Simulated scan of single mutants.
Amino acid sequence: MQQQQQFGKYQLAILIIVFLIGSTPLFELGITAKQDAWIAMLVAAAAGLLLTVIYLTIHKRAPNAGLGDLYKYHFGRYIGGFAAMVHALWLSYESMRNVRDVGELTTMALLNFTPKWVVMLLILAVAAYTASKGVEVLARIIQLLFPVVLFSYFLVILLVFFSGLVKVNQLLPMMENGPMPILKAAFPNLLAFPFGQMVVFLVLFGHVSEKKSISKVTYWSQIGVSLFLVFMNALILCVLGPELADLTTLPLLHVVQLVRLANFLERLDVVVTLLLFIGLFVKIATLYIASILMVSEVTGWSYRTLVFPIGALIYAASFLEPNYTYHNWIGLDITLKIVPIFQIGLPLLMLAVGIRKKYRAAALGGAQST
């Protein structure tokens, strides 16, 4: 039943845009490159587009297959099945990290006296309900949320510019210390998050009804959202400068707190909070559903029967890290060293195996014809 659920090319475009945006603009990623953080983001975006070329090449070999089936197609039933299960667990782990982010950031910036476990349970319950309805409903929900995200960011950008907070000279001098700080900021951190997370769409491409449009829609959507993320990165730098942006937990929240117009328009924290919840919810739900789909493909178990067990696993795992400092350390120092296995290593291996199979089939065909 779940395999029959499909969504259109425009919903795919919106899903890519909202998923990649997520909570990314709220933070100043690549800040180790200081005022060149936006250049690091641009470099990582270009590399991420190359990764997407690899993902789409793999997808075209079996257009109706999910990532679990693609692993089995390339590596065989047992090795491929094992790799798919490990990847599914990793997707659950990524979803868990976003659940914990919701709990920590909400109690830190908004609801100081609300227990984290309550906040995390609520956001995961909504994601679990969405997951139970399947990928088609996920696409429709994100389609409904898209205008809210679009308008909110447009409002924030407009008000920041009208408030006279933007100082372009904060981006100078460019490449003061050469290209190395930019490259170190871009790889692997910025490539892994957010651009390498496009690998999750190998799970979802098989559910797109208009298969011929997938590549075109994916490329244009990713290019557009990448330019937006680079712009937002530069905007935060122009307002706060590299030093303050580095010290602030939620730089975009700090930016909107500086907005003052006509002595009455201020306190736009609610807009950033809304964007935070939408972005993290989309990440949680998409990764959650992708994990369920992969386990279902490998084991043959019903999709619906896996919703609660995987959701319970995500919720339980969100308590393993004792505090937010440890959570960030795991995410920045450990996770980003492991994730290239799933985003780069295994896809490249699948690409190589597929090329080898193609040439072997061509060689056998030529031998038989002679």
Rank of each mutant, 00 (worst) to 15 (best):
Phe205Gln: 06
Ile278Val: 07
Gly80Trp: 00
Val272Arg: 08
Ser291Met: 12
Leu158Trp: 15
Arg100Met: 11
Gly331Asn: 03
Leu287Tyr: 12
Leu50Phe: 09
Thr273Ala: 10
Lys216Ala: 12
Thr335Asn: 13
Phe27His: 08
Phe161Tyr: 10
Ala13Asp: 08
Ile292Gln: 05
Ala290Asp: 14
Ile289Cys: 07
Pro347Arg: 02
Gln197Lys: 13
Ala367His: 15
Met232Glu: 11
Asp333Ala: 10
Asn233His: 06
Asn328Asp: 11
Val239Leu: 10
Glu176His: 12
Val137Thr: 06
Val255Phe: 00
Trp90Ser: 02
Leu110Ala: 14
Asp101Gln: 03
Lys216Glu: 06
Met85Asp: 00
Ile314Phe: 11
Thr218Met: 01
Tyr315Val: 15
Leu349Ser: 01
Gly48Ile: 07
Leu172Cys: 07
Asn169Asp: 10
Val282Cys: 03
Leu227Ile: 07
Thr24Trp: 02
Leu280Phe: 08
Phe308Gln: 14
Ser95Tyr: 13
Val208Gly: 05
His74Val: 01
Ser209Arg: 15
Ala33Lys: 07
Lys337Trp: 04
Ser209Asn: 12
Gln368Gly: 10
Ala185Asn: 03
Arg260Gly: 07
Ser296Leu: 12
Ser213Met: 14
Val118Ala: 15
Thr52Ile: 14
Val43Pro: 04
Ser152Gly: 00
Leu183His: 04
Val86Gln: 01
Leu265Gln: 07
Glu243Gly: 06
Ala125Ser: 15
Ile236Lys: 08
Ala262Tyr: 04
Lys212Ile: 09
Tyr326Ala: 14
Gln35Ala: 14
Ile123Lys: 10
Val86His: 03
His59Cys: 01
His327Thr: 05
Leu49Thr: 10
Lys167Arg: 07
Phe75Leu: 04
Ala109His: 12
Ala83Glu: 01
Leu229Asn: 03
Leu49Trp: 09
Tyr78Ala: 03
Gln5Val: 08
Leu172Met: 09
Thr24Phe: 02
Leu280Trp: 02
Ala88Ile: 02
Tyr326His: 12
Ala125Thr: 15
Leu247Trp: 00
Ser163Glu: 08
Tyr71Trp: 06
Met174Glu: 04
Gly345Ile: 01
Val259Lys: 00
Ser163Trp: 09
Ile355Trp: 01
Ala47Arg: 02
Lys184Trp: 05
Val86Trp: 01
Ile330Gly: 09
Lys212Tyr: 03
Thr335Gly: 13
Val295His: 06
Asn177His: 09
Leu165Val: 00
Ala45Pro: 08
Ile214Lys: 04
Val203Gly: 05
Phe7Met: 09
Gly22Lys: 08
Arg360Ala: 13
Gly365Asp: 07
Thr286Ala: 13
Lys184Glu: 04
Ala13Arg: 11
Ala234Phe: 11
Leu287Met: 12
His87Asp: 01
Ile330Cys: 07
Leu332Ala: 12
Leu159Tyr: 07
Ala131Tyr: 03
Leu105Ser: 09
Val166Cys: 05
Leu276Ser: 07
Gln2Gly: 09
Leu105Gln: 06
Asp101Cys: 01
Gln222Trp: 13
Phe319Gly: 01
Ile16Gly: 02
Phe231Ala: 11
Tyr359Cys: 07
Ser213Gln: 14
Val199Asp: 08
Ala362Thr: 05
Ala33Tyr: 05
Tyr153Ala: 11
Val307His: 02
Ala33Leu: 15
Val203Ala: 15
Ala185Ile: 09
Tyr359His: 15
Ala65Gly: 14
Ile310Trp: 11
Asn233Ser: 11
